[in-house]
């Protein structure tokens, strides 16, 4: 009985993962649809909501995180170790925190919004109505969301990392009197291709997974409006879960 249940839940997980994979694959297949005006409008609206509207807050969070990290490192290793401080800052911010924080902010802001919006559209028969117009919902609703969220994740990660490193450098230079050049030397020597590509791969993958999960959960809502909050909660938790899993896997692949 127990084995049967485990097998069933394992099968469900595999089916769900293949659904997510299909959504992502179809989004790439449907990329040429961005030439169509209404599809492009949906894409730009998502970029505005998930990327541009979030940018200011992301930069502030980045600055604060950079200040906190550099303060902790400086009090741990001492003021004269500018190169080491720069190195640790790059490792912590670029390798880990940048993609992770961008993903978490997107989850808090966009995952809930997308799953609730698609869920409500499904319950109210709007997705069926779109299909009746001869419009493929995967091209009009799903693809622009997946691509826009993924691009936003990459861009937000970049701005977060930039703000965190700048914030850290400015604080140590101002309050501990560490020369600016000492940090930049440490940062530049540590900024290697693996660091940058790990950050890029993570943010790309997080964006794809987060958007696919939120679209999938939104599309699954049917019958009653009361199922929308359940879908948003599920989408949020699953997105967080996947982000941490993929974070671990990519870190292992790149730096083990």
């Amino acid at each position: 009985m127990k084995i049967k249940r485990i097998t069933e839940s394992l099968l469900d997980t595999i089916i769900y993962l293949s659904e997510l994979f299909n959504l992502i694959l179809n989004a790439f297949k449907n990329l040429p649809a961005l030439k169509i005006n209404p599809v492009r409008t949906v894409f730009f609206r998502q970029i505005y909501f998930a990327g541009i509207e979030t940018l200011g807050k992301m930069v502030i969070i980045g600055l604060l995180i950079g200040i906190v990290i550099i303060s902790q490192i400086t009090s741990l290793v001492g003021v004269g170790r500018g190169e080491l401080i720069g190195k640790i800052l790059v490792w912590v911010v670029i390798r880990e925190l940048g993609p992770l924080f961008a993903a978490i902010v997107i989850i808090a802001r966009s995952v809930t919004a997308i799953s609730a919006e698609l869920g409500s559209m499904n319950v109210q028969g709007e997705i069926a109505s779109i299909e009746m117009l001869g419009i493929d919902p995967e091209r009009y609703l799903i693809m622009p969301r997946i691509i826009a969220i993924t691009l936003s994740a990459v861009i937000l990660t970049f701005y977060f990392e930039l703000a965190a490193i700048l914030g850290g450098i400015i604080v140590t230079s101002l309050f501990w009197g560490v020369p600016f050049e000492q940090h930049t030397a440490g940062i530049l020597t540590s900024l290697t291709i693996p660091e940058l590509s790990a950050s890029l791969v993570k943010s790309l993958l997080f964006g794809l997974v987060i958007s696919a999960v939120s679209c999938s959960q939104g599309l699954k809502v049917s019958g009653s409006i009361t199922k929308i909050p359940q879908a948003t909660t599920k989408a949020t938790m699953q997105s967080l879960f996947f982000v941490f899993i993929f974070d671990g896997i990519i870190t292992l692949i790149f730096f083990l």
Partner: peptide, 17 residues
Amino acid sequence: VRKRMGIVLNNGGLISN
């Protein structure tokens, strides 16, 4: 095929956003 069909739904079938 649907492109050649027009459908007027009871609730209008409009997209709320």
